[in-house]
Design a protein around this nucleic acid. Sequence first.
DNA 1: CGTTGAGTCTGTATGAACTACAGAGCGTAA
DNA 2: TTACGCTCTGTAGTTCATACAGACTCAACG
Lengths: 140, 140
Amino acid sequence: MNDGRGKVRGLRRSELARLTGCNLETIRYYENIGIMPPPPRTARNYRVYDESHVARLRFVMRARDLGFTLEETRDLLDLVDGRAGTCPDVQALAQRHIEAVRAKIADLRRIERVLSETVSRCTGDEVPDCAVIDALQQAD
Amino acid sequence: MNDGRGKVRGLRRSELARLTGCNLETIRYYENIGIMPPPPRTARNYRVYDESHVARLRFVMRARDLGFTLEETRDLLDLVDGRAGTCPDVQALAQRHIEAVRAKIADLRRIERVLSETVSRCTGDEVPDCAVIDALQQAD
DNA sequence: CGTTGAGTCTGTATGAACTACAGAGCGTAA
DNA sequence: TTACGCTCTGTAGTTCATACAGACTCAACG
C-alpha cells in the first residue's frame, strides 16, 4: 500500500469507502453510471484506487450532500475535468451553479435564524409548551 | 371559498398545490405517510384544506428543499406541534438541526468561493482549457 | 336535461439515487 | 488446509417522490 515515499500506492474498495465515508456499494454504483472512472484492476480482478479517486469521490459526496443532483454533479465534474467545452461555456455553467449555491445559502440562513431565535427564547424550563415554538410556523 | 371576511373557507387539493408549489400527488403521499394530517372531507369524499395546511406544507417543502430528510422534517414538525416533549428536549433537537444547518452553510460557502474564483479568473476566451479549472479539484 | 370536460378519488407503477443481499471467488493466517 | 474476511457480479429492496389508470363527481353549455 505504501511505496516508502509517503505515497499511497493502491486502495481497495473498502479502503476508499473508509477514507471518504462513502458507502461501499455506492462506489460501485458511481462507477456503473460513469460518475467515477473504472479503476485499474489487479490480476485477480480487484479494483485498485489512488488519491485521485479519493479526491473525486469526496467532491461528489460533498456536492450530493449539498443538494446537487447527480446530473448537476456530473456537470461540476465536467467542469473539473475540463470537459465542459470552451471557456465561456465553463463560465456560464459555473455561474448557474453559483446562483443555485447562493440561493441555498440564503434559505439555510433563514432556517438557521429562525431555529436559533427559537432556541434562545426557550426558557429551558420543564414546560411542555415553549410559547416560542409557533415562531417556526412563520419560518419564511 | 370565501366567507366574506377575508378568510379562505376551504381549498381543494389542486388549490393547495398551486398555493404552495407542491406537486399534487405529493400532497396525498405526505398524508399517507403522516407528514400532513388527513384533512376533513366533503360529503362526496373530496379533501378540504385550510390555511393551516398551507402553512404546514410550505414548512415541509422548505425543510425538504434545504436537505432535511423526511424523518428530520418529522422531528421539526413535532417541534412545531409541541409534540417534541419538554422544553429542554425541544432545545436539544433544535440545536442539533442548527449545527447541521451551519455545517451545510459552511460547505456551500466553500463551494461558492471556489466557483466564483474560477469564474473570475476565466478569461472568457475561446480556449478549451481554462487553466483555473483545477482549482475546483481542491475545493475542500 | 344530457353530455362533456375538468377535477377528484383510489391503488399501483415508475423513477432517481442509493443500499443491501446472494452466491461465487480470492487470500492469508492459524 | 480450512476458516474467515474480503472481493466480485447481478439483482432486489428502500426512500422520496411523481405519474398513470380507471372510476366518480360536478359545473357548464347547448
